[in-house]
Amino acid sequence: MARELRGYFGSPLAYVLIVIFLLLNGFFTFFISGFYEMEQADLRDAFFRWHPWLFLVLVPAVAMRLWAEERRQGTMELILTLPITLGEAILGKFLAAWFFIAVSMALTFPLVLTTAYLGDPDMGAIFCGYVGSILLGGAYLSVGSMTSAITRNQVISFVAAAMICLFLVLAGYPPVTDPLADWVPKWIVDIVAGFSVMTHYQSMQKGVIDFRDLLYYGSLMFFMLFANGVILQARRSS
């Protein structure tokens, strides 16, 4: 894991991504949401609500190089013959990238300070918001890691990850699910929405960390990373 971290913080791409992330965050929070005009010491509507969309672009960009780059450089053969298991390699890379995302998130702290200075926010809710966002980032990342294993082309990896994540978002996004509810029975909509990160993301933004939501993220990441392993194993031979 340490190796990937060094890889991340040593590469210019990482800094570009962090800067873009912070700029976009500021842009959405202050200009689109009109944070100041809201006159609410609350980050949920102004800040966290954008993350499922922001991450849609940024997280696949972080993840796209994970395995695609190994395949392109041929270093896959190197890393998979070193004394580490495939699982360790996948998990190490994933955790490093996740840590990178967490650091980017942590760098948004001035916003929290601003809010605390301007008013009296519910720190518990903000904390839950951060946890939710980081889990969301992890979920996207596991998707990106998996798509990155399919191809040696980072662009394809990026697009595929973004598409899957978009599906995961839209499946539970009210503007999509509400019209859908007129067409199909509600229980089907609910099941589909259950697969969505949105459903689980929003409940956490309300300041509730539910075990079921944690389980959702945990199993999504596990499934994606497991698929990642299966793909790598199968692709070795070719």
Binding site: A2, R3, G7, G10, S11, Q73, G74, L78, L82, P83
Partner: peptide, 30 residues
């Protein structure tokens, strides 16, 4: 794998690392 060293065909290396960094990284994994 612990007992052996392997030089794959075409000598793949991590292009975005320095020589020392790359060898340190291998040492850690080893």
């Amino acid at each position: 794998r612990r007992k052996m060293g392997y030089l794959p065909e075409n000598a793949p290396v991590y292009e975005d690392m320095t020589v020392t960094g790359f060898l340190q990284f291998i040492a850690r994994i080893r």
